[in-house]
Amino acid sequence: MRLEVRFAGFGGQGVITAGRLLALIIMEADPSLYVVYSPSYGFQTRGGDTLSDVIISHEEIDYPKVRRIDLAVMLTQQAYNKYCGLVKDDGLIVIDEHVNKDKGTCGNKRHYKLGIVASARQIGSDAYASTIMLGASINYLGNTEPLKGRLMLEHARQVVIRYFKETLLGRKVGIEDLINKNIKALEIGYEMMKIK
């Protein structure tokens, strides 16, 4: 059983972070699973296309890149047009509410629109799109094989707290606030996802 996830968007939306966190959360949820995480950004960290892929499998992962995506979360029209074709026929395409699916060539696939970027701005910054799409993905993947019944929101909470504590080690103020906002974003994202 191989599961392929892609997060794609614009630099600054936390697409890379979302992928890394998802990989860590899967490891926390089921240590027996194999996980590959592959970020792609080059010099685009401050704007421009970014994407990150996570592959999850119960056996050693051979080909390490995505070919047939099970879940794609795409925050920009550009990302959607470019990658929707890679999503499996029975996969799920999650797009931000401003993305127009009629502009792509994937109309017959399963789409789900979420107000990810708008909710992130309400929390305070585009970067919270990261933990919002993560929350939504956790909910969906937690109902999909091979993660059904094993991947819980609680795993995500623990990992997100640990991750931001470690990566923000050098920061003197505002860590608590940042972690709280990310947890809130995670929960908002989790609640948004209604597809089982």
Binding site: R20, A23, V35, V36, Y37, S38, I61, P64
Partner: peptide
């Protein structure tokens, strides 16, 4: 490059 830049468990 692939293996050096890939993240795996």
């Amino acid at each position: 490059e692939i293996t050096a830049h890939l993240w795996e468990k």
